[in-house]
């Protein structure tokens, strides 16, 4: 009888490989259902040279976020508004799908979606030091050390945990004579967050004669998925803060919002428990 070991079979017939699992409602990584999530683990404050940092592990995906605060001149149009500049990096070391060199379309689009979500989450006016002269700009670098799917979820989680961990100097004084800002060296003031967005990514797969949602796809599962949807929910209020989806029937879109809202509460508690 012809036999293939699982790894070879996965390489040669990836769709068939995953379909066998889907037919039984279980996943290759041991999760029991199409709608089960990997539980994230969050550690904060590991990078002491940053104003705030967080390390997040979701299954095998590992991502690190470091936040550095600097002073900048606000724009003339919005003189009290600070800045958060986030950048997501999926370097070649995190997965064989990424080549060294300039970030590709996937990386840049994740960067853009994370940036658009975080801009609604942070109280930007709270970053003002002196109107029209000086504001804080938070540079957030989100670097993936290992990538096993659900980039958006892990990146946003790391960023929000790092923002909660960020501390700014307790006293800042702007001196108009020489245009400089003096800050105390103790870092004790947290950032005001208006919302706590949590992203949940689903794949849409053909299974059991119809289409179903597959929660938190790993990188392999992502390759056989027809389309995806990421739903961002505020863990504090339950409001939606972003929907980024491809081809999906309305019922599945509704279901994804319900599931994402539930999950946001749970993940919000995990982040809330961290400092």
């Amino acid at each position: 009888m012809f036999r293939l070991d699982p790894d070879t079979f996965k390489r040669i017939h990836p769709i068939e490989f995953h379909r066998r699992f889907l037919a039984n409602g279980i996943r290759p990584d041991g999760r029991e259902s199409l709608l089960s999530w990997r539980t994230p683990v969050v550690h904060t404050g590991s990078i002491t040279t940053c104003n705030g940092s967080a390390m997040v592990r979701v299954g095998a995906t590992a991502v690190l976020c470091g936040i550095k605060a600097e002073i900048a001149v606000p724009s003339a149009a919005e003189p009290t508004r600070g800045f958060v500049v986030s950048n997501v990096d999926l370097p070649a070391l995190c997965s064989s799908n990424f080549r060294p060199g300039a970030p590709g379309e996937f990386t840049q689009s994740i960067s853009d979606t994370v940036q658009s979500v975080v801009e609604s989450a942070v109280d930007m006016d709270g970053l003002c030091i002196e109107p029209d002269r000086a504001v804080w700009v938070l540079y957030a670098d989100i670097v993936f050390l290992n990538y096993e799917g659900a980039a958006m979820d892990a990146a946003l989680l790391a960023l929000m945990a790092a923002l909660r961990n960020t501390r700014l100097p307790s006293k800042t004084v702007y001196s108009p004579t020489d245009g400089t800002v003096r800050a105390s060296s103790d870092l004790s003031v947290p950032i005001t967050l208006k919302h706590l967005p949590v992203a949940s990514t689903f794949g849409v797969v053909e299974a059991g004669g119809g289409r179903m949602l597959m929660a938190d796809p790993t990188e392999d599962e992502d390759a056989i998925v027809g389309s995806r949807v990421s739903v961002v929910v505020d863990a504090l209020s339950g409001d939606l803060m972003g929907t980024f989806g491809g081809h999906i029937p309305l019922e599945l879109l509704e279901q994804s919002v319900v599931l994402a809202t539930q999950r946001a509460k749970e993940v919000g508690q995990i982040v809330g428990a961290s400092k």
Partner: peptide
């Protein structure tokens, strides 16, 4: 919200939404 629909099925072809909104609004 940027929504894209086709003229054959009732599915959403693409949906990109940013900002803060409730499910009823959506």
């Amino acid at each position: 919200h940027v929504f894209t629909f086709d003229n054959v099925s009732k599915d959403v072809t693409s949906c990109v939404s940013t900002g803060v909104y409730t499910y009823e609004q959506y």
